[in-house]
Design a protein around this nucleic acid. Structure first.
Length: 201
DNA sequence: TGGACGATCCCCT
DNA sequence: GGGGATCGTCCAT
């Protein structure tokens, strides 16, 4: 698998968001190799985007968003969930792409274990594994410790895969936000089962 | 120092 | 389709 270079991340956030669709995300642990395909993302810009954590400037929580590109920004929300973002732009300029949907390709049984659902595994559950930002984090063992992880390292990295055609890409407003709700900065692969929601156009 | 809220998920009706 | 869980972060007192 060929890792994406630093230059891939060091571009305008909207550009990176679109280009992330179809890329492989790889997670290595002592016990497992987990691989998925990114099928849904949302772009969050810097001081110009009222929905972004970086909107009001740098703080202890969002510092990674202002750092060098090609790192993981992981945050904790609703008192129980983690979400992960891929940091874009250049050092000093905030920007990140939220990973909202991933198609599992390898390590499914480990993902099921990490998700730790009690209910029996149905075909329906296969989609439930990673069709949402917090579900993806749980399935891939991503939490506080992975905040700031370098995506050119070995623990978590992204890799090339077969390219996505422009007509396969859908676009909509972002999910679950109030400010900046009119911006159509969500991108997804049309018809893919691991896209989290329908969303508005 | 406190309170409102959140880039969510799951279970229940 | 609706609400509860659950706590870190941020801003207003």
């Amino acid at each position: 698998m060929k890792k994406l270079p630093r230059a891939f991340y060091s571009q305008p956030t909207l550009r990176v968001a679109k280009d992330l669709l179809g890329k492989l995300i790889v997670r290595t642990t002592r016990h497992a190799l987990l691989v998925g395909r990114i099928v849904e993302v949302e772009a969050y810009l810097g001081e110009s985007d009222p929905a972004s954590h970086a909107y009001r400037g740098i703080t202890a929580r969002n510092a990674v968003m202002f750092g060098p590109p090609g790192r993981l920004y992981v945050y904790f929300t609703y008192g129980m969930h983690f979400c992960s973002n891929i940091v874009t732009e250049t050092k000093g300029k905030a920007g990140a792409v939220l990973v909202r949907g991933v198609e599992p390709l390898r390590g499914v049984t480990v993902m099921q274990k990490l998700r730790g659902r009690k209910k029996k595994a149905t075909r329906e559950d296969q989609r439930e594994l990673t069709n949402g930002p917090a579900k993806f984090c749980e399935a891939f063992g991503i939490g506080e410790k992975q905040n700031g992880a370098d995506l050119l390292g070995t623990e978590i990295f992204l890799a090339h895969d077969t390219p996505v055609r422009p007509r396969e890409v859908g676009r909509s407003t972002r999910i679950g936000i109030r400010n900046g709700k009119e911006k159509r900065w969500r991108f997804y692969l049309k018809g893919n089962s691991w896209v989290s929601k329908k969303g508005t156009t």
